[in-house]
Simulated scan of single mutants.
Amino acid sequence: MIRVLIADDQELVRAGLAALLNLEEDIEVVSQLASGEGAAEAVQANSVDVALLDIEMPGVDGISATKDLAGLCKVLIVTTFGRAGYLQRALEAGAAGFMVKDAPAEQLAEGIRKVMAGDKAIDPALAAEALVAGINPLTDRERDILRIALTGASVKHIAGELFLSPGTVRNHLSSAIGKTATTNRTEAAQVAQSKGWL
């Protein structure tokens, strides 16, 4: 029996996934969470084999939770947002699989079996898109700055929040604008978010 944890902030989706997976003879959903927060504890307390994580959740998101679960269980990201950048970040964090929520239930169950067996389970269309898109060109610092820029914050505010000088923030923004082929920080942040780079 493959013991599964589901972390998704949408209760209906979480319950629906659990109901579908519990119909499988070899899969049992043993824990459900509304965030990645507490995932490591739940995995250990319930002897979880595979964690199904959404990417965008309040508090601890799916990428951060994947890092927290390293060495504790296999992770399969199941998300609405099939973005190549998310796929790359999930794999870098240690996920063994990445599927979109509109996949058939049988495909999700098969993905769980694959990652349990030590294989990768990645949506083929998304894998092809990721190859075409290439790697995320942004540095960690550029990503930090663009995340804050998404809120419409000024350079001074970004600098204060990240304990950097305004000049350093401007330099990073200039680099990020060039890498995203945009004309200002707002556009750069929006493009980076749409590609799943943030």
Rank of each mutant, 00 (worst) to 15 (best):
I122L: 15
A18C: 06
D9H: 08
R113V: 15
A70G: 10
D68F: 03
A7I: 01
L108I: 11
G85W: 03
A95I: 14
M99N: 15
D54L: 02
A109N: 13
A105P: 14
T168W: 05
S165D: 08
G59N: 09
G85L: 09
R185W: 06
G97D: 03
A70F: 03
T66N: 02
E37C: 00
T168C: 05
V13K: 07
K74M: 06
V4P: 00
A181E: 13
L76W: 00
L69Q: 11
I77W: 03
I148C: 01
A84L: 07
Q32T: 02
L21A: 10
L12G: 07
T186N: 04
G167C: 07
I177G: 01
G82C: 08
S154V: 10
A40G: 12
I145E: 06
V169L: 01
A176H: 03
A159N: 10
Q44L: 10
G62Q: 05
T139N: 08
I6E: 00
K67A: 07
A45N: 10
A109S: 12
M57A: 00
L53R: 08
V115Y: 09
R170D: 05
D54I: 06
A103I: 13
K67S: 04
Q10W: 00
G85Y: 06
M116T: 15
D49Y: 06
G97S: 12
E92H: 15
Y86M: 08
K114M: 15
P124H: 14
E106Y: 11
C73W: 07
S194Y: 03
A128Q: 14
E106K: 15
P137R: 13
M99K: 08
L69I: 08
G38L: 08
I148A: 00
A105W: 00
A65C: 12
E37S: 02
F163A: 11
K156W: 03
G38V: 03
L108C: 13
V132F: 13
E41W: 09
E24L: 03
V115L: 06
G196I: 07
Q10R: 04
P104W: 11
A130Q: 09
M57R: 00
E25R: 14
T182G: 01
S35I: 02
E25Y: 07
R147D: 13
D8S: 03
V4A: 00
P137W: 11
F81R: 02
L21S: 02
P137I: 14
P58D: 12
G152T: 02
A121E: 11
A128Y: 04
L150W: 02
I63F: 09
A39K: 11
E110K: 14
I2E: 02
I6A: 01
I77R: 09
L164I: 10
V78E: 06
A121N: 14
V13N: 06
A15P: 00
A127M: 13
A7D: 01
H172F: 04
